[in-house]
Design a protein around this nucleic acid. Structure first.
Lengths: 130, 130
DNA sequence: AAATATTGGTCTAATTAGTAGACCGTGGGC
DNA sequence: GCCCACGGTCTACTAATTAGACCAATATTT
C-alpha cells in the first residue's frame, strides 16, 4: 500500500470508494503493518530499550524492529533517546500522541482477547466444511 | 509473523514477554495485515460483491483481495454467498462476529481521522531535523 | 454468426519485502 | 590481550506481493 496515486477508474463522485489520499489509509498503512501495533503495545506500560523490545516481541528481526521504530518516531508516536554510554543505551518511549493511541488500541486488544475463542472455533468449522 | 513457535530465549517467567501462542498476536496477525481492516471497513455499511470491494479499495490486487476475503471468511468475520448467475455474482457480508468488531474498528478509524494532522506535522518536523 | 464484454477468481513470472546472521566500534571485566 | 554487551547496519537468501494473462458461460453488440 505504498501507492498514493493510481486513482484510475475511481470516480471521485462515488462516496463508497476511499478518497485517495485518505487519512484513514495513511494512518492504517503505518500502524496496520505486521509490527507497529505490537511495538506500541510493548511500549505502553513503560519505556523500553531496543533489546528489551526485541526480546518481548520475540520473533521480529533487528532490521524490522529498527525500521518500525524509525517509522513510529517519524510519525510522532514515540521518542528515541540515546544515552552516550558504553555499551550504548537507547530508550524508546511513547509520546503524548502515542499515549493517546493507547485507548483505541486497548479496545482492539480487548476485543481480540474476548473473541479469540470464537475465531478459533470458526477456523475449525471452516476446515471441517472445506 | 507466520511463526508460532520459536520461543527461544523467551523465559515464560517474564511477564513482559508475549506468550507464544498469544490470542492478541493471533488476532493481530490476521486483522493487522495490509488489507483486512480496509476490507472490513468497506463491508461495514453494506454487503458488497468482489468487484465492488476491489474498486472501493482501489489499489489491492485481485489475488490479495481474494486471499484476504478467504482468511476473513475462515476466521468467521464474513460470509461468502455465491449466486449461480452468469456472469457470476458473489457477495460478502459481515457476520455477527464481524459486526461486533465494528466498534473497536470505528474507534481506531476515528482516532486516525482526528490525529492525522498531527502525524503529518510530526513527519514534516522529522524531515526538518534529520 | 461471430466477436466482445462481464464476473470472480486462479496461475505464472517478475518485483519487492523480510529474514538470519555476520560485522562494527568502544569500553569494562577477566 | 580477549571476549562480551549493545544498537544498529549490511549482505545474501527466502518469502510475500504484484501485474497481467487466462478461464467458463451467457448476453449484448456488430
Amino acid at each position: 500500500m505504498t501507492k498514493t496515486s493510481k486513482d484510475a477508474n475511481s470516480p471521485a463522485s462515488d462516496p463508497f470508494v476511499f478518497e485517495q489520499p485518505c487519512p484513514i489509509r495513511d494512518v492504517l498503512d503505518r500502524i496496520g503493518d505486521q509490527w507497529s501495533l505490537l511495538v506500541l503495545e510493548s511500549l505502553a506500560p513503560a519505556r523500553r530499550r531496543f533489546s528489551e523490545l526485541q526480546r518481548a516481541i520475540g520473533d521480529i528481526s533487528k532490521q524490522m524492529l529498527s525500521r518500525t521504530l524509525k517509522q513510529l518516531e517519524q510519525d510522532g508516536f514515540i521518542t528515541r533517546t540515546v544515552y552516550p554510554e558504553v555499551p550504548p543505551r537507547v530508550e524508546y518511549e511513547l509520546t503524548e500522541l502515542g499515549r493517546s493511541f493507547e485507548q483505541p488500541m486497548r479496545e482492539l486488544v480487548q476485543w481480540a482477547d474476548s473473541n479469540h475463542r470464537q475465531i478459533v472455533e470458526a477456523r475449525a468449522r471452516y476446515r471441517a466444511t472445506r
